[in-house]
Design a protein around this nucleic acid. Sequence first.
DNA 1: GCCGCTTTGTGCCTGCGTTCACAAATGAAC
DNA 2: GTTCATTTGTGAACGCAGGCACAAAGCGGC
Lengths: 275, 275
Amino acid sequence: MVAQRGRRNGAAAHKRTRGGATPDADNAPTAEIPAVAENGADPEVRAKSIPEAAVARLAVYLRILSAMAEQGATTVSSEELSTAAGVNSAKLRKDLSYLGSYGTRGVGYEVAVLVGQIERVLGLTRQHKVAVVGIGNLGHALANYGGFPGRGFPVEALFDIDPDLIGVPVGGIPVTHLDDIPQVCADRQISIGVIATPPAAAQTVCDRLVEGGVQCILNFAPVVLQVPEHVEVRKVDLAVELQILSFHVARRADNEPNGKVAESTVAGNGAVLQS
Amino acid sequence: MVAQRGRRNGAAAHKRTRGGATPDADNAPTAEIPAVAENGADPEVRAKSIPEAAVARLAVYLRILSAMAEQGATTVSSEELSTAAGVNSAKLRKDLSYLGSYGTRGVGYEVAVLVGQIERVLGLTRQHKVAVVGIGNLGHALANYGGFPGRGFPVEALFDIDPDLIGVPVGGIPVTHLDDIPQVCADRQISIGVIATPPAAAQTVCDRLVEGGVQCILNFAPVVLQVPEHVEVRKVDLAVELQILSFHVARRADNEPNGKVAESTVAGNGAVLQS
DNA sequence: GCCGCTTTGTGCCTGCGTTCACAAATGAAC
DNA sequence: GTTCATTTGTGAACGCAGGCACAAAGCGGC
Ligand SMILES: NC(=O)c1ccc[n+]([C@@H]2O[C@H](COP(=O)([O-])OP(=O)(O)OC[C@H]3O[C@@H](n4cnc5c(N)ncnc54)[C@H](O)[C@@H]3O)[C@@H](O)[C@H]2O)c1
Ligand SMILES: NC(=O)c1ccc[n+]([C@@H]2O[C@H](COP(=O)([O-])OP(=O)(O)OC[C@H]3O[C@@H](n4cnc5c(N)ncnc54)[C@H](O)[C@@H]3O)[C@@H](O)[C@H]2O)c1
């Protein structure tokens, strides 16, 4: 299949296919925010541009901080929080600095303030309604999972193509037919669509979600989705995860061509005590 | 030149806490391979050092190539494959160049060769046995999923703490009790452990897996795991994924402080014709 | 009120990852 | 055999992210 010849790539590179987010370390494009300068909507908050990698970590910090708050902690130091999150303390401080300056030198950060600020930046001050499409093995697990509603992501619609499933409640919500995706999503103001259908159906489902006004898609099907520019896609590809792990095993095996497997490297427990 | 006081990074960088892989765009540390120079084990293959980000993409290319092979394709150009994978063609070629030079200039790549080479580099030439711990909603889905065995990752052990589950076969494999993790993993040469237990149990389960000689862990529980240095952890945190999506929605909303929601931006199909 | 201790916030440097652009290689046509 | 069209492979430039180290900033003790 040699296909298209002719044109070098004069206008080629433009066709940003968009959509297929590489499984993991992609999303490089630093979340740009054109410095909304005027528009005094947000008072003192000058939402700079936060690196995508930092956003991912902020979500982790938020979970840890919430847990700390529940246990009664009122302040944390960057050292504390960073070890709990498994990152460098300098990196943590830099990440927090994207929020603004909410720490007290010599003391640390106030847990409640930090929680509030991270929620603000991540847009968690309002709820984001979620729809799950494909109520099979995985879809059932997602629909039943309590961790989403608890964090501001209520699941408010379920879809499938299987007639036997239509109308059956899963996790308290009845399953609707695939064809109603656009309608229902628009009606219920769904903002996040989760795709857990077989790969072959994923693109079609995706198109309908977009049609229904869904702005974000979390895709579990191992396919690269095509979406319009204003829609954000993230992919969770478990097979890829396993293959990355496999790579590391192989690499390690190559590096130590000693005994066979060297199993029983029990190493006691991995208590990374300090540093 | 600011002189640089004190040790630049002489021996500092060691304190790597290791373990808690940030949810997403982390794993930066370019998979180092000390250039095994001698040791003629692998004939012509000089396993260089492949960037982690590239490894993730290679796994995606592999899936696409496999599908193409099934449809009878024998060769592909970088242009074709790159659009299918949703990446830049230059990036694709660079990624493939980490494998060695297996393309034919003016023609393209032979699908079969590429598949073989990627499998070799990812360590997929041998099987990696998988164990799943925590056979709840998610664990059931994972245990039943056919996509893993089909890709060289046979699930060969299931564990849970629930007495009602012990002995019950799920996806053809009976569930074993938690306590037997070290024994069973060692016996069956499990190399990858998947954790799908409640967060509170994750660290304990992780320790036992390590005790059983498991080298890689895929963690679904929203906690940061502590592991010894020789164990590789990857985390799949769905709440974090949703929060990253939320961030993008919020960001976009901030940028366009026009009408309310501007829904119905159906935009027909996402054919991003030209830049 | 001053001093010293602690912890934040950040400037700077380094290194990885992405992208461009082009030389080299190859096959086909004549 | 030469030339042309095509596509690979990669050197080099660039931009982002990570990490160090220190100045600035509070707090508490004396
Ligand atoms: N189960 C896992 O652990 C796992 C792991 C990795 C990836 N995945 C991926 O997740 C997706 C779902 O996996 P699963 O195990 O739940 O599969 P499944 O077969 O159990 O469920 C698929 C569901 O989608 C429904 N469906 C089929 N066609 C549809 C369509 N056109 N529109 C809407 N719904 C449709 C089916 O009725 C079924 O309920 C697959 O793409 C799979 O590759 C699953
Ligand atoms: N279900 C989802 O869609 C989803 C989404 C995101 C994250 N998660 C995470 O995945 C994990 C599992 O989720 P789930 O919905 O399957 O939960 P679940 O409650 O359905 O299943 C948990 C299973 O773990 C078992 N278990 C409890 N303690 C254990 C222990 N000490 N050792 C071994 N097994 C033990 C339970 O018996 C149960 O079978 C949780 O950490 C959850 O936060 C789940």
